[in-house]
């Protein structure tokens, strides 16, 4: 039983990371209808930036803050320079463009930081704390806390502020939003910035347990896609819950189904993606899209 609870908690910790990245994917998908395949690599780049700052003698929290700021700026610049020009082009073109970004950013991180894995010391110790015979790792608790805080902050921004209202309006109906005075292009750029911030949180939280290397987020990206699909591509709440459910599910399946073990977790995530897409494309919380032809 103790083992079971431990697995659930560490599953929630990884689930928080998947959820944050999934939320980033959903934010962009809702606003622009694009699946950003480069989201994982953007997160890796953020984590490397944070690592470099710490390597130059910064303490963790200032470095984390600076990384968040730089990631936001990077997301906005990316939207302005490469996404904006083909925003209204064919879907295939935008998908391929984000694939290009994936490859380019992956190459850039390898170029600058090298392919060797780096140890990333997070703000939380890996020492366990005992609660009623169950050993929780402080790192897991910390990761869960940070993911929850960032997701709640983004949630508050969207539901409680005028800016958030503008963001939602621009995503839901760009034409009418423009008519009532929302600056839609600015909102889209902001959306990319926020997605980059969420990615940065996910990347920095994942780095201590995964070892920092250029391909670090490749598997996490697939988990995040699975989480987003499970929760419904249009539902921010669904993305977060999808992430947590997936994190716990993968941990339990990996521990108790020996045939799957550690190696086939990715395959389980793929099965989730395919299963949901084929059986219930709207996911758990998404709306079914009805199209007039």
């Amino acid at each position: 039983m103790a083992n079971f609870i431990q697995q659930v908690v560490s599953g929630l910790a990884s689930g928080g990371i998947y959820g944050a990245l999934a939320l980033a994917i959903v934010l962009i998908h809702r606003a622009t209808g694009v699946l950003n395949f480069a989201q994982g690599e953007m997160a890796t780049l953020s984590a490397f930036v944070c690592w470099s700052l710490i390597d130059h003698g910064w303490a963790f929290w200032p470095a984390f803050g600076a990384t968040i700021f730089l990631s936001f700026a990077g997301g906005v610049v990316l939207e302005q320079t490469v996404i904006r020009p083909i925003q209204n082009g064919p879907l295939l073109g935008i998908v391929i463009l984000t694939i290009g970004l994936l490859i380019a950013i992956n190459g850039l991180t390898t170029w600058v930081w090298g392919g060797a894995a780096k140890q990333f010391h997070g703000p939380f110790s890996t020492a366990p704390i005992n609660v009623g015979g169950v050993a929780f790792s402080k790192q897991d608790i910390g990761v869960i806390a940070i993911s929850v805080v960032s997701v709640v902050l983004i949630g508050l921004l969207f539901t409680r502020t005028k800016l958030g209202l503008g963001l939602r309006a621009a995503a839901a109906n760009p034409t009418e939003a423009r008519l009532v005075g929302v600056r839609v292009p600015g909102m889209l750029a902001l959306g990319w910035g926020l997605a980059a911030v969420l990615g940065a949180v996910a990347g920095v939280m994942a780095a201590p347990s995964l070892f920092l290397e250029p391909n670090m987020m490749q598997t996490v990206l697939l988990y995040a896609f699975a989480a987003a699909v499970l929760g419904g591509m249009d539902s921010p709440v669904g993305a977060v819950i999808g992430g947590l459910v997936l994190g716990v599910l993968l941990n339990l399946v990996g521990t108790y189904v020996h045939w799957v073990g550690g190696e086939l977790r990715l395959a389980v995530a793929l099965a989730v993606i395919l299963g949901v897409l084929l059986i219930r494309p709207a996911g758990l919380f998404g709306r079914t899209a009805v199209r007039r032809v």
């Binding site: 490469v82 020009p85 083909i86 082009g89 064919p90 073109g93 935008i94 391929i96 463009l97 694939i99 290009g100 970004l101 994936l102 490859i103 380019a104 950013i105 992956n106 190459g107 850039l108 991180t109 390898t110 170029w111 600058v112 090298g114 392919g115 250029p214």
Partner: peptide, 25 residues
């Protein structure tokens, strides 16, 4: 000899081509 630069330019070529998409098509 390092993999990074080549990979970067692969991606960059793709991004630039997509920005020129109408022409490519």
């Amino acid at each position: 000899k390092q993999a990074g630069p080549t990979t970067f330019f692969f991606g960059a070529v793709l991004v630039v081509l997509m920005l020129l998409l109408p022409l490519v098509l």
